[in-house]
Design a protein around this nucleic acid. Structure first.
Lengths: 143, 143
DNA sequence: TTTCCTGCAAAGGGTTTGCACGTGT
DNA sequence: ACACGTGCAAACCCTTTGCAGGAAA
């Protein structure tokens, strides 16, 4: 008989490995984030998690988000505004282009820019550890 | 006889042109920012302005900073942390490399990257209006 | 059982604002 | 004179935290 594979998400597995408790709340918050592709802020995560199960407080959302950040399963994006927004961290790095009219966030990857960034850092005497790049653009009307 | 040229800073001139009142406080805050090359935060601007003249409140610093931002003489830099930091906006655009060990901010310009950014935006159907790029690096030890 | 996690509500830290007075033009 | 700017302190908003009860391992 073939053993049934246990159903655990990427996030859950990574947590079990580290000996971090997989509480009910954390599973739901992880699911909400995994299922969201629109870069929600903390409050939005709270709302969505609550819709699934109302035993989740905003404080726990904040604590869990911080935990996820520290364990590199979550990435914080700051848009110059007030609240921070988040996205699941996957292997593929990407940057963001923000539509200044609608606020929509478009993800993109550009290897050439990444290479140049490394080169620039090196020229200044640094090894590039991380970077943040956001482009702000206005949609070109195609009449 | 040669007329004596009136002593006004870049910021002051730009304000006179727009009919914005040049108050005592605004002049001092403008001077503090012009004289600072270390990207101070609002509180630091407040401290430095106060050292020159203690008739300046933190509220006014915030109000003035916002005014300066709106008039494009000041640029806000967000470092992912809590407070925003500022720098005088000059004609020459530049980006920042942050030393992750010391917190030092190094300015740099790279035309090639700027060009690529425009190209990327266009490819996504956008005209690039603005951008923000911060590199985080670790100093290369030269033993 | 033991350790860690949670909800609640209160505190925190940066930034903004209402109000009455003060100041630039 | 008039509109606009300022100081003060209270309000705001997002985020964090102390505490006592609750749940994962």
């Amino acid at each position: 008989m073939i053993a049934k594979k246990k159903q655990t998400s990427r996030i859950e597995e990574s947590f079990l490995d580290k000996g971090i408790k997989l509480t009910h709340q954390r599973k739901i918050i992880a699911k909400v984030i995994t299922d969201s592709s629109d870069h929600p802020d903390a409050n939005e995560v709270f709302i969505r998690a609550n819709k699934i199960d109302n035993r989740i407080s905003l404080a726990t959302v904040y604590r869990t988000i911080k935990l996820f950040e520290e364990n590199h399963v979550l990435n914080r994006i700051e848009l110059g505004g007030k609240r921070a927004r988040y996205e699941e961290l996957t292997d593929s790095h990407h940057d963001h282009l923000i539509d200044i009219e609608s606020g929509e966030i478009i993800e993109f990857v550009d290897e050439e820019i990444e290479e140049l960034q490394k080169k620039v850092a090196k020229k200044l005497g640094y090894n590039l550890v991380d970077h943040k790049m956001e482009l702000f653009g206005k949609k070109i009307k195609s009449n």
